[in-house]
Structure formats: structure tokens, C-alpha cells
Design a protein around this nucleic acid. Structure first.
Length: 535
DNA sequence: GTAGGGTTAG
């Protein structure tokens, strides 16, 4: 693609003449090839100054915008938007659809929405582009916007296609909206899209991320064709649910069938080892990936292995490994290492790692300050903790509040610690009292060391009782039938007391409870958790 | 001759 474009480009420069067709052919080669930046420089430089006889038309701009999307180049993208308006091409649907995608790729979901809202006519690509834009946006609540847009699309009678399904399913997966996910599954079946590779893969991912790993597996087993992507999705799904043995045996099955794993497959495999504390296996897969599969270890693989070593308590080895690795460790690696040090009670190491690598030069995100504060709390160094929080405050930073969500009959209910805003708050707190009573009977003592405040023991116990996932599980118990599965989504990670509480609740109420935290799933059943208390 | 989609260590 590049070579043909380069040849044609050279020819245009030589003759100093072109026509829209040739110029667009060059652009297409560059924009879709391996060097999209060439497309932009061709437009902004060559076309204007070296080659006469061509003005960009409505075929030119989508190609250029495509290049901007791939480069995440918002500046040139905006400039092109200006040119489009100037040339009166802003009513062309191809151009508008490309603009939506350009803004989406460059992180401007609001700009993308503005373009979309101004369109007088929208086809399936317009809808898919804006749904995809919302689904991919990092801002809070964007998944819900994507799902809402999907409903509007159906109301307008536009038939979704494969790409639409994939984007909607991503929004379901990210937000954990299982009911909509199931609905999209039904629509896919009706439109015979369920068996298409991309859609089937997205469905598997959706079920896994919505807590229903069995349904994910069932669908995966029924797929008529599977590529490395599909295998990787299933392997990482199993890994995130703590089913490491299943994940690894699936990886071996994949190899037996002759499917070549890629670097992402290996990330999933290492993450399976990490989640189960399988140090020896993790080391072996890490070594083998280069030798047996020719896959170069990258940052995420090093990160996985270091996390695995650290969490298993091999702190010195993990830190040494981080210092000696051939790629510069990033903040994530130092943070996981500091967290592992805190878990294993090595306060000195934890504190040093945060100060050396996360808070140096006056930089630092709120997460690093919160981590340092937690390290001091665990070590009961209240003065130091207060200083950290003050430093945070003076920089205008705040700890993001912990929240838990639960879906009941298609409606999402969200709770924060001590929340009294829910319409059934009274019943929820009554249920919570009942749970506490039964926990006491079971001999459970609140793990007050988890409350990281310098307050008396009674106040700590009070704080613990009202953590958001406890409110969510109480609500789940009163608003679902006996024996029904309870699925809770947390924005952060659980504390140990909540983890213990879930175990006991699963046993005494005879419920399966699934908690998705920031990074993985915990499945509580009959008093135990699938993570084996390793998290 | 132009536009949209599936995984990713915390």
C-alpha cells in the first residue's frame, strides 16, 4: 500500500501536476498503510506547494481524517474540520462520519456528539461511529450514553450491523449492564450476526465482564470459527474470574489446534498465573514466550511477572527484577510493587518506592498520594498520613469515592459508603443490621485495621459497617428471589472486611455473590472465594 | 476512488 502510494507521489511531484483521483489514491495508500503521517504531510505540504491542479474534495477529507484518527492528531483534525466548513463540504455524510470518528479517536467525545447532533441524515455508519465513540470514551457515564444512543437508533428504524453490535457490547461490558447485553445478544441472533467472528468475540467478552463466565464459555464453545483474538478474550475472561487452571488448559488447547498466540495472549496467560499466585508457572511462561513462540517480552509482561513475584512475597527479587529489566519500568510497575510491599508489611520499602518513583519532582497523581497515605495508616503513622493528605489537598486533589453498583430488573442502583439517598434506604439498613447480627453469631470480628483513619475503635467499626459493597449486598438480598445470584460492581478494590463479609453472607444466605472490582472478579459461594484469598 | 467494530499487567 505504501510503496504504490510513494511511487505515485513521486510521479506527481515530477510532473508537478495532479488530479483529484490520483491525489486521493496517494492519500488512501498513506492513510491506510503503515505511515499515516505521510498522508497528512502530503496534504499539508506536497499537495499545496509542489503539485498543481488539485483541490481536495469530499473524497479527500475522509481519508485525511482517517489518518488523524490513527495518529490521534487532534490539532490537524480540527484544522481539517475548518477547511471542510470553508469549502462547504460539511453536509456530506461520509465527511461527517469521518469527523465523528476523528474526534472520538482524539479524545473529544463532546465534539463528536456536536457533529452527530447537527447531522440532518444519519446512516448505520453514523450511528455506529457515535456509539463506538461513546463506548470508547473514558469519561464517567459514557457507556450509558452509548446504550441510550443504541436505543434511539433502533427507534429510528436503522438496522444495526456487525460493527454496531461490537460497539454496543463494549459499552455493556464496561458498564456491566448484563440486561442490555442479553438484549443485544437476542437482536444479534435475530439478525444472524451472532455467529460472526467479531460479534461472537464481543459477546464472549461481554458475558465474561458482566460476571457470567459460564455463558461466555458456552458461547465460545459454540463459535463456528475462532482466531487468536477470540481465544485471548476467553483466556483473559477465565483469568479475571480466578479460573486460572481453566485459562491455562485453554491456552494449551489453543496451541494444540495450531492457533498462534500473540503478545496479548501471553498477557492473559501471565495474568492467569498472577491471579492464582502461580509463581513457577508464571516464570516458565515468561521465559518460554520468546523461546517457543518468538514473542518479545514487553512492559505488560514484565509488569505481570513483577506483580506476581511481589504478591507472592518475593519483594526483593521483584524489585531487583524491575531495576534490571531492559525496558524502563513505568509508574504502574512501581505502584504494584509498593502495594505488594504494603500487603506484606514492608512499610519501609513501600514508602521508599512511592517517594522514589511515584512522587518525585513534585509530580504525582491522587492515586499515589492515597497509596502513601494508606501505607502510613497501616503502619499507624497518623502524623505522616495527615501530612500526605494535606499535601494532596493543597494540590487540589481528592480521593475518588468508592462506590458499588448492582443491577436489579434492568435498573442500576449505585451506593457510596454511608449512603442514605436510596429510596429503600431504611429497609437496606435494617437488612444490614440483620446481616451484622448473623455475622456476629458466626464469630466474625470486624477487621478494623482496614479503616485508615485516626479515630477510636468504635468509630472504625461504624465506618466499616457502611462500606458501599455492604449496602449493595444488603439491597441485593432484599430485592432478589431466594437462591438468585447477586452481582456487584465496584469502582475500586474491596477491603478485607468486605471480602470476609461476602464469604460468610454467601454461606448463611445460600447465595452466589459475584463482585467485580477494578481489575478482576471474586465469586463467593458456600463461604469461600474463587480468588483463594490471593488478591 | 471516501467513513464505523472484538483482548491489554494496576
Amino acid at each position: 500500500m505504501n510503496q504504490a502510494a510513494q511511487q505515485l507521489h513521486a510521479q506527481l511531484i515530477k510532473t508537478r501536476r495532479s488530479d483529484p483521483h490520483s491525489a486521493n489514491a496517494v492519500l488512501k495508500g498513506y492513510a491506510k498503510g503503515s505511515r499515516p503521517q505521510e498522508a497528512l504531510s502530503f496534504f499539508f505540504f506536497s499537495l499545496r506547494q509542489q503539485v498543481a491542479g488539485t483541490e481536495p474534495d469530499s473524497f479527500t477529507f475522509p481519508l485525511l481524517l482517517h489518518a488523524c484518527s490513527r495518529l490521534r492528531a487532534k490539532g490537524p483534525g480540527k484544522q481539517l474540520h475548518g477547511n471542510i466548513v470553508k469549502q462547504g463540504l460539511s453536509m456530506d455524510m461520509f465527511v461527517q462520519n469521518s469527523l465523528i470518528h476523528m474526534y472520538a479517536s482524539c479524545g473529544g467525545i463532546q465534539c463528536a456528539l456536536k457533529v452527530f447532533e447537527r447531522m440532518s441524515k444519519r446512516d448505520v455508519v453514523s450511528w455506529t461511529s457515535i456509539i463506538g465513540a461513546a463506548a470508547a470514551a473514558a469519561e464517567e457515564g459514557c457507556s450509558a450514553v452509548a446504550l441510550h444512543l443504541f436505543d434511539e437508533m433502533l427507534e429510528e428504524g436503522v438496522a444495526p450491523n456487525e460493527a454496531t453490535m461490537v460497539s454496543v457490547l463494549r459499552a455493556c461490558a464496561d458498564s456491566g449492564t448484563l440486561s442490555t447485553g442479553r438484549r443485544v445478544h437476542r437482536i444479534s441472533k435475530k439478525l444472524k450476526l451472532e455467529v460472526k467472528l467479531h460479534v461472537a468475540t464481543a459477546l464472549v467478552d461481554m458475558y465474561a465482564k458482566c460476571g457470567s463466565i459460564e455463558e461466555a464459555r458456552e458461547l465460545f464453545d459454540q463459535m463456528p470459527e475462532r482466531d487468536a483474538f477470540a481465544w485471548t478474550v476467553m483466556i483473559s475472561g477465565l483469568a479475571s474470574h480466578g479460573r486460572s487452571r481453566d485459562a491455562l488448559s485453554l491456552f494449551h488447547r489453543m496451541r494444540e489446534l495450531g492457533v498462534t498466540p500473540d503478545e496479548r495472549t501471553m498477557t492473559a496467560v501471565l495474568s492467569a498465573c498472577r491471579n492464582a499466585g502461580m509463581v513457577a508457572d508464571g516464570r516458565r511462561y515468561f521465559e518460554e514466550m520468546k523461546k517457543s513462540h518468538g514473542i518479545q517480552q514487553r512492559l505488560q509482561h514484565y509488569g505481570c511477572l513483577i506483580d506476581l513475584l511481589g504478591r507472592a512475597g518475593n519483594l526483593e527479587e521483584a524489585e531487583e527484577f524491575a531495576r534490571r529489566m531492559p525496558i524502563d519500568p513505568d509508574r504502574v510497575i512501581w505502584r504494584t510493587l509498593a502495594w505488594a510491599s504494603k500487603i506484606h508489611g514492608d512499610t519501609g520499602r513501600a514508602e521508599r518506592l512511592v517517594r522514589e518513583h511515584l512522587l518525585g519532582l513534585g509530580f504525582g497523581d491522587s492515586g499515589s498520594f492515597v497509596l502513601l497515605g494508606n501505607i502510613y495508616s497501616t503502619a499507624r503513622k497518623w502524623d505522616q498520613k495527615a501530612r500526605v493528605w494535606a499535601a494532596m489537598g493543597s494540590r487540589g486533589m481528592k480521593k475518588p469515592p468508592a462506590s458499588s453498583r448492582i443491577e436489579i430488573n434492568g435498573e442500576i442502583h449505585e451506593f457510596e459508603a454511608g449512603d442514605g439517598r436510596h429510596r429503600e434506604a431504611e429497609k437496606i439498613y435494617l437488612k444490614l443490621e440483620e446481616i451484622e447480627e448473623r455475622l456476629r453469631e458466626e464469630g466474625h470480628r470486624p477487621r478494623i485495621s482496614e479503616v485508615l483513619l485516626d479515630v477510636d475503635e468504635e468509630e472504625k467499626a461504624f465506618q466499616l459497617r457502611h462500606h458501599s459493597e455492604k449496602l449493595a449486598v444488603a439491597f441485593g438480598l432484599i430485592s432478589s428471589g431466594p437462591g438468585e445470584k447477586i452481582v456487584i460492581f465496584k469502582n475500586l478494590r474491596s477491603c478485607e472486611d468486605c471480602h470476609e463479609t461476602m464469604k460468610i453472607v454467601s454461606r448463611i444466605y445460600g447465595r452466589e455473590i459475584i463482585v467485580r472490582d477494578r481489575v478482576r472478579f471474586h465469586r463467593f459461594s458456600r463461604g469461600t472465594c474463587s480468588c483463594g484469598d490471593f488478591w
